[in-house]
């Protein structure tokens, strides 16, 4: 079949599919700003950013993973497991710096296992990461017995309480990570290879790209961001608790997909993920600002995920009909 020659012009549909998230985000922001005086304040903006730091960090890594055509549902398990290792080491009186290092090491181990299983053994990513999620959660219970811990240490205090230019340092960390993620994905050779592997695995392989290593690396990036997310969450809440990150993977995936990353891999941007993350943050924020009860909050969240998947499906359909 010959491919139709379209010379350059983008249809309105293409534009909507590509930039739809920004329109929606803008629309919702305007509606909320008009209807809710408490929404349109600087404090609320920083509140929203603070609330999405965990989603945001995870979203960056999830973008990498989903770009390769995979999925990682183990993020909550990695977070809680890494956090639990931190607290037991702290309890045992080890130095804080070393313990924080261990957060990253534990997460890295999970990332390597996920990546190796998916890329080199060829196990299905959803099931691999579901298994490692359970392992992570189970291990955290083994380590802590499910108890909560507070007084985590000086750097947690620092991250949790320090402000820079009136904005919590956690937000700066998240924005910095987005910048790094943007640079990695869109400006480096590595990002090229990642996009190529996700866009067309066979073509990438024929072109001499080590597709397995690239796929594996996405899961490792993801796991390291889980470590950061765990660190920030514990700092923000001032405590470790065993339900940390429970069910977070679905909101993160929703944020990434709403941000325009295709579940089938290949196309996606870090900026889109930031927008998707903020959109979800704003919706959660608005639900609280408008005193929406528990039942309707769940309905709303279900609707968000549904819309995200719907959006992706429409996009894929548009792609295949080209």
């Amino acid at each position: 079949m010959a491919v139709k020659t379209k010379t350059g012009e983008h249809s309105a549909r293409d534009v909507f599919l590509k930039y739809g998230i920004y329109f929606i985000l803008l629309f919702i922001v305007i509606v909320l700003a008009v209807t809710s005086p408490s929404f349109r304040t600087v404090t609320n903006l920083t509140n929203v950013l603070l609330q999405v730091t965990t989603y945001g960090c995870l979203g960056i890594g999830m973008t990498f993973v989903i770009l390769t055509g995979g999925i990682d549902v183990s993020v909550g398990g990695i977070m809680v497991c890494a956090g639990s290792v931190y607290v037991i080491l702290s309890q045992a009186g080890m130095a804080e710096g070393l313990n924080i290092f261990m957060i990253f090491i534990v997460a890295l181990i999970f990332g390597v296992v996920n990546g190796y299983a998916v890329a080199y053994i060829g196990m299905p990513p959803f099931l691999v990461t579901l298994a490692t999620q359970c392992i992570g959660r189970g291990m955290s219970l083994v380590f802590t017995g499910g108890a909560s811990y507070r007084d985590l240490g000086a750097t947690f205090e620092f991250l949790g309480k320090t402000k820079l230019l009136g904005i919590s340092i956690q937000i700066w960390v998240m924005l910095l990570l987005f910048a790094v993620g943007y640079f990695l994905l869109h400006k480096t050779v590595y990002g090229r290879k990642l996009t190529a592997v996700g866009g067309n695995l066979n073509a990438a392989r024929v072109s001499g790209i080590n597709d397995r290593l690239i796929t594996c690396s996405a899961y490792i990036v993801m796991s390291l961001l889980c470590a950061v997310a765990a660190y920030l969450t514990m700092a923000r809440l001032g405590s470790y608790y065993s339900a940390m990150g429970d069910g977070i993977e679905f909101m993160v995936i929703a944020a990434v997909v709403i941000g325009g990353t295709s579940m089938s891999g290949g196309s996606g941007t870090i900026i889109g993920t930031l927008a998707g993350t903020i959109l979800i943050g704003i919706i959660n924020n608005a639900l609280n600002l408008f005193h929406v009860g528990a039942e309707w909050q769940d309905v709303a969240k279900g609707a968000i995920i549904f819309l995200a998947v719907l959006f992706d499906a429409i996009k894929n359909k548009a792609k295949t009909s080209d």
Binding site: T188, V189, G199, A204, S207, G208, K319
Partner: peptide, 25 residues
Amino acid sequence: LILEESVRFNMTLANLKAIARGIMV
């Protein structure tokens, strides 16, 4: 080809070294 990507993306894919400066494109 990687159909979703641009002409330049596809053209340089087999020889990324040629367009690399350090780790950057």
